[in-house]
């Protein structure tokens, strides 16, 4: 049950020319179905419609420069992959940058865990094994042989490193809070780790924490404030917070898990222990993050 067993050399493409993600996923889907794409980048066959409608084909940001397109179809029983480097990077939705390397996964609902595991392997190959460079320098056969030589088991337990996403930005202790809030808003993040220059996590800033720093405590004890119609002292309330730096407002109450933590541990930490975000660390250094919505999305949609 190895990833390499489910990808043929002819499913590995270099410098694929596509204009958008729909086209990219259609081409790769057809290639997996037919086993070929012609030289111009056009597919020669289309995926058998009896395999059912695709339930999810939006590209998912998996690591800087890389995305996964998971094509889940009701009547597909096995799992098949295609791997492609793109001639021109394609912008990812949700402002997650652009992808130059795509892993396409065609699977049925029963292979969701394998798909999740494959996405994890893909992230590691991109981030740590130089997959992007190998795609541009190695032949299909050589790359396939290289993949075959790696331990890319699909039926291994899903671990934190398989479902985490890379940190999108860095906040240091001396980053002004105004910059932190700008980055949090840009990346739609409710919590962010504060790290040192070696990526050791030293604290966490949450939007809830920032709110509470500005709002006086008595505010929370009121049953209602709607009766006050003309009084908005918030500029005054947040004066101090706005002038602070990350190190002054962070809390040290954050949650870390090693990258080999099981999905069970991750879910337990997020739900039973009621943490909103988990920072995944290797040797004490942050390598990824997992939050509640992400894990629910991956478990439900993968």
């Amino acid at each position: 049950m190895d990833l390499a067993n489910h990808i043929k050399p002819e499913h590995i493409f270099r410098d694929l020319r596509v204009r958008d993600w729909t086209l990219a996923s259609e081409m790769l889907a057809d290639a997996v179905a037919a086993g070929a794409i012609d030289r111009s980048g056009s597919s020669v066959m289309t995926l058998d419609t009896s395999a059912g409608e695709s339930s999810h084909r939006a590209p998912l940001f998996i690591a800087p420069g890389g995305a996964v397109v998971h094509d889940r179809r009701a009547h597909v029983t096995d799992i098949t992959f295609a791997l492609a480097s793109l001639k021109e990077p394609l912008a990812l939705p949700d402002g997650d940058g652009a992808a130059e390397v795509v892993l396409y996964i065609l699977s049925g609902p029963e292979r969701s865990a394998w798909a999740l595991k494959a996405a994890g392997h893909f992230r590691t190959l991109l981030a740590e094994e130089g997959l992007r460079e190998r795609l541009s320098t190695m032949s299909r056969e050589a790359l396939h042989a290289w993949l075959t030589g790696l331990d890319l088991r699909l039926d291994a337990p899903v671990l934190a490193r398989d479902i985490m996403r890379p940190p999108l930005f860095k906040v240091f202790a001396d980053t002004p809070v105004t910059e932190v809030t700008r980055l949090m808003e840009k990346h739609r993040s409710n919590a962010v780790a504060v790290v040192d220059r070696e990526e050791h996590i030293i604290g966490e800033i949450t939007s809830n924490r920032l709110f509470k720093l500005g709002i006086p405590e008595f505010f929370e004890r009121l049953a209602s404030v709607s009766f006050i119609r003309e009084f908005d002292p918030f500029e005054h309330y947040y004066t101090q917070t706005g002038q602070a730096r990350a190190g002054e407002v962070m809390t040290t109450d954050f949650t870390v898990l090693p990258e080999d933590a099981t999905i069970m541990e991750v879910v337990f930490t997020l739900t039973v222990q009621n943490h909103r975000k988990i920072y995944v660390v290797r040797d004490g250094r942050r390598v990824g993050v997992i939050d509640r919505v992400e894990i629910i999305n991956k478990v439900l949609n993968f």
Partner: peptide, 9 residues
């Protein structure tokens, strides 16, 4: 200008 009636939840 406050509206006390709005205070009652």
């Amino acid at each position: 200008r406050a509206r006390p009636e709005l205070a009652i939840l």
